[in-house]
Amino acid sequence: MFKKILFATTSSAICNDASNAAIELAKKHNSKLYIFHALGFPTRGFGSHVVDFKTGEHEYYSPEYVSRIKGEIEKTYAAQLKELDNYTIETLAGVPHTEILRLARKEEVDLIVMGPHTKEDKGALLYRSMLGSTMQGVTQKARCPVMIVSCPVPKEKLEFKNIVFGTDFSKLSDAAFIFAYDLAKERGSMLYLFHALDITPGIGAAIFGQNEIDKCLYGIKDRIKETYVSKMEGFDNYNIRTWEGIPYMEIVKFARRKEADLIVMAHHSKEKDPDKAIIGSTMEQVVMRANCPVVSVNRQV
């Protein structure tokens, strides 16, 4: 499934969890791994200087600088890369998400792996809007699934034995389902088809009684069967779960309870204006709170 994996890195400690996951995945799947680092932003237009992302210093964008940075990346990941033959390290100056997308498109990669943000402060994860703009830019436009890794992932969890597919029945969720289903089939995983009925209280919002909620949940179960189970030919290692609550909270809770190895969701669902669909707020919250990698799907693959 993952013949080509693109690991986009800041080449700093903040990407360690993502690098471990990307390299392990490449080993497991015999994938070609592209390690990509946008090494600086070309602030001077046509000038030859770049602002180094790591140091913030102005650097001269010369072949020497490029090879120095490549060397540093190679050194950073040397121990992990030992058992991996098929990898390449790519660097260039540019707007990171643009260059990540350009490379992903050029090499027709099957998966992009990256960390959630470029800020060193882990505490920032607790707050909204702290996702790095690079990750937002990539998930917004990527044609392949994007795996966001924001916590340490033990090797065995990368077998993806427990996959939670969170749906809101949007068109993009159909695309996310296909990815989750294909992966579950390939890995022989348990696939949880999960929906959380949104009962977030709001001004003027109807307050449901438990009976109404239960009724709704039954209806949703049927809808899951009709929408997804009907497409699973002979695959019976699945489980349908419908909970009520605040969707992101319920998905995260459910994933924890089932010790999920992976959460798969559509990038955004209701927002049709692409510029506003930076990343669905449910997705955003899930990425930040989940204790396993999260895959964002934005296109029918």
């Binding site: 809101d168 949007s170 929906h195 949104d198 209701k270 510029d275």
Partner: peptide
Amino acid sequence: LLEMVIVPDHLKPKEEEEGANE
């Protein structure tokens, strides 16, 4: 301009089926 422009109806993408939560 992109933020403010009104997309004519005939150029809008087709509406998808609404989600269960709406």
